[in-house]
Design a protein around this nucleic acid. Structure first.
Length: 787
DNA sequence: ATGCCTCGAGTTCA
DNA sequence: CTCGAGGCAT
């Protein structure tokens, strides 16, 4: 230590050191100035620490040495934001930005509105609260209303001032901004972690988010995080200047880092020009961005324009197109799905695309490959569609190796060697092995056990694969035969096969606990709802929605499994194709045996019910099913055939046919009679008798229709993440009120419930002018309905 | 026949 | 999330 620097008074010296350290932070983070060298900075810190250690009375909570504090006892406390944290609407094209600007021009009457424009940082949004110039609390966005208190972690970020500079700040100041990890720091951190065998971070954004959620601030302190401020939070209106850009200047004066890329722009042209300039620099920037943000500069006008749902009308994020990368196709494999669909998959040389390493990309189908002319060995451009699923955009033919040949769909299933066939007029190729193909068996069992079907916890794809490969199960019914010992034996053999250390033998207790849990989960799944069970069966074309239709309209498994397709076809959303597929499934003796076995092993449906009056009306039961018994129908068929010859087409022409006058579509009647004419359907015809009789009996006791529900006839779409309930739970509640919950937005949608991080569906709703409810509105409504 | 609107199925990665 | 295709109104 240099004697000339050493002040005689320790208190004075401590203050001096703090000022120098804070200045160094300010100059480095806010002014982008070459600050003092690291060694010098470290020396100052050590000196201050030593001083504070010898004179504890000098300690202050806002000292730079106190950035790393104690860890919170458990988890993070919740923080209610004094002012809601916004999320922005997204624009992906110039036209969408044009619409946005146009709306503002119309509402404000200003032809060239001024915008404050800035890069959109790819990090984590946070809110910082200062009282009397001191940093008191910081929180994540959370759902916008309530976030997590990460004050201790934020204190460790040197770019965040612990005390404001100057003196003209408001008594209470909340500032919004983005915590991010600079690319260089991210690389350096990972290089070090790799060298030391530590955990590497996936990408700068995950790095920032993960670091802030560390319970131990010491860990956060070791992560190279930075911060940019970009908006006011809870600040008295009287304390704000008249424009956003003026506020940004003030933030910088108070000691907050504000990006130097922030500018003002005029009108649409100014915004788009800024977008292109930033786009051109994007790769050269020291941090990741995913677009730019335009904010109407006049704060008074901002207040006037207000919000639509949870997004402001006065700001929008203009996103860059999904990031693209080039890589090489190592191989094109075929994957066999649950229904036998053969999907080609490109195995790629690992490449970073928009932050994650991509090694596989779907090629969808043979047509797609032909269109793109993808060949093994090709260099291709890969992008993440909607920033999630990787896809091959195009081939770079100039980089194609000299001897390459067009890719051809294999003729046989890679798993069971059965022939691959393409149905007339369809794009997909399918493995013809059906029930004997191990790939299809596995996939259908995986589907059966999956969360949205029978929800057997712990029974995932890995485990099912082993169970199948080692011969413990071949059908879903076998799952219910498995014993504790089976699981342990299976695990032992799997370990043996893989040559892995049989940890489970060492720890026999662990293995048996694991197996017990599985048995328990399988047992638990025996109590299923009819709709989930039907969905779990994996009938082609029968997804969750169609399963629900079947369950609601027919009410019992017994009826459904014996229902002939002309009757299935009468239900909404079930046409010829789907009806035939259901019929085909139940017509196969193997499937009926599996069903019987499942029931025998104790699978039972807890919500079987009698069909509603609606069903009776739909089927016209009173009109004709009651009157027409099966022998009568046969007799009728014979008569009609005799009357009009053998052609069902001609039969369909007859408007006077009793079935037609009973309200059935003519082609249904024709199909029904035609179906009966086929001797191969005789067995099914016999079985269907049970269903007919049940329906007929029911028709006799049809009562008045149920009271109408508040949301009857309304179509609702859910999107984004809701904080208080899962989307499924919300869906169930809305359905209980009579609403139909659909997956896609259209003009017919009555309203969209948008949670946090809502994506394209919200955009579409806004584009179509569909009503949008935020979570608060939804909860209020549900409360009002007593749900 | 045509053009929505939906649903089903397949897929990626941490 | 996206694509293909079934259902249904026009």
């Amino acid at each position: 230590m240099n004697a000339s620097e050493t002040s005689a008074d320790p208190a004075q010296r401590a203050a001096e050191l703090r000022t120098r350290i804070e200045d160094a932070n300010y100059r480095y983070h806010v002014l982008d100035d070459a600050a003092i060298p690291d060694v010098e900075y470290d020396r100052l810190m050590r000196e201050l620490e030593a001083l504070e250690a010898s004179y504890p009375e000098l300690l202050r909570s806002d000292s730079p040495t106190r950035r790393v504090g104690a860890r919170p006892a458990e988890g993070f406390a919740e923080v209610r934001h004094a002012q809601r944290m916004l999320s922005l609407a997204n624009a992906f094209s110039d036209a969408e930005v044009g619409d946005f600007v146009q709306r503002i021009v119309e509402r404000t009457g200003n032809a060239q509105p001024q915008f404050s424009v800035e890069p959109k940082f790819d990090g984590l949004a946070i809110s910082l609260r200062y009282e009397h110039g001191a940093f008191v609390q910081g929180a994540t966005r959370g759902d916008g209303e309530t976030g997590e208190d990460v004050t201790a972690n934020l204190r460790t970020i040197r770019a965040i001032p612990l005390r404001l500079r100057g003196a003209d700040w408001p008594a209470v100041l909340e500032v919004r901004g983005e915590v991010y990890m600079p690319r260089a720091a991210f690389e350096a951190y990972n290089a070090k972690a790799r060298a030391e065998g530590g955990k590497v971070l996936a990408n700068p954004r995950n790095g920032a988010a993960g670091s802030l959620r560390q319970l131990d601030p010491a860990i956060t302190a070791a992560r190279p995080l930075a911060f940019y401020a970009y908006a006011p939070g809870d600040v008295a209106e009287s304390e704000l200047p008249s424009t956003h850009s003026a506020f940004m200047t003030r933030l910088r004066d108070w000691g907050f880092p504000v990006s130097h890329l922030v500018e003002t722009a005029h009108g649409l042209d100014g915004c788009l020009d800024y977008f292109r300039r930033i786009g051109a620099q994007r790769d050269a920037l020291p941090f990741d961005i995913d677009g730019v943000v335009y904010k109407l500069d006049d704060l008074g006008l901002q207040r006037e324009l207000g919000f639509v749902g949870r997004t402001p009308r006065w700001a929008i994020a203009h996103k860059f197109p999904a990031q693209e990368q080039t890589t090489r196709v190592l191989a094109i494999d075929i994957n066999i799905g649950r229904t036998g669909a053969a999907t080609p998959i490109a195995r790629l040389e690992p490449v970073q695309v928009a932050g994650v390493v991509v090694t596989n990309a779907t090629l969808h189908n043979a047509d797609q490959i032909r269109r793109l002319d993808v060949r093994v060995g090709d260099s291709v451009i890969v992008r993440r569609a909607g920033d999630v699923i990787p896809e091959v955009v195009r081939v770079m033919p100039e980089l194609r190796p000299s001897e390459s040949s067009k890719w051809q769909m294999p003729t046989h299933c890679p798993i069971c060697r059965s022939e691959l066939v393409q149905e007339e007029g369809q794009v997909v190729w399918r493995c013809s092995g059906e029930l004997i193909c191990p790939a299809q068996q596995k996939e259908s069992i995986i589907h059966f056990a999956s969360r949205r079907a029978m929800d057997i916890e712990g029974l995932g794809s890995r485990l099912i694969e082993d169970l199948c490969d080692l011969g413990f199960v071949a059908s879903v019914a076998d799952l219910y035969k498995l014993s504790l010992d089976d699981f342990i034996e299976m695990k032992r053999r799997a370990d043996e096969r893989d040559g892995t250390t049989p940890e489970t033998v060492k720890a026999g207790k662990v293995a048996s606990k694991w197996a017990e849990n599985l048995i328990e989960a399988i047992d638990h799944s025996k109590q299923a709802t009819l709709e989930r069970f039907l969905f779990a069966l994996g009938i082609e074309h029968v997804g969750e929605s169609t399963a629900k239709v079947l369950a609601n309209w027919f009410g019992t498994l017994e009826r459904i499994r014996h229902m002939p397709w002309p009757l299935l076809k009468l239900l909404p959303d079930i046409g010829g194709e789907v009806g035939r597929s259901i019929d085909h499934f139940f017509a196969q003796a193997g499937n009926q045996r599996v069903l019987d076995a499942l029931l025998e092993h104790g699978v039972s449906l807890k919500d079987e019910h009698d069909v509603s009056a609606k069903l009776a009306a739909r089927l016209g039961i009173e009109n004709f099913l009651v009157q027409l018994e099966i022998p009568k129908l046969t007799e009728l068929r014979a008569k009609q055939f005799a009357a009009v010859g053998q052609s069902p087409e001609q039969l369909a022409e007859l408007p006077s046919h009793p079935l037609i006058s009973a309200g059935l579509p003519a082609d249904t009647v024709a199909a029904w009679l035609d179906w009966h004419a086929d001797a191969a359907n005789a067995t099914l015809y016999q079985r269907s008798a049970a269903a007919w009789n049940a329906l007929r009996e029911l028709a006799a006791s049809v009562s008045a229709s149920a009271a109408t529900l508040p949301l009857e006839g309304k179509t609702v779409v859910l999107t984004g993440t809701l904080s208080s309930m899962s989307r499924d739970q919300v869906g169930a509640k809305l359905e209980a009120l009579g609403a139909k919950v659909s997956g896609s937005v259209s003009k017919k949608t009555d309203f969209v419930v948008a949670g946090e991080a809502a994506g394209s569906k919200l955009d579409k709703a806004q584009a179509l002018g569909v009503e949008v409810w935020d979570e608060a509105r939804l909860l209020e409504y549900l409360k009002g309905q007593g749900a």
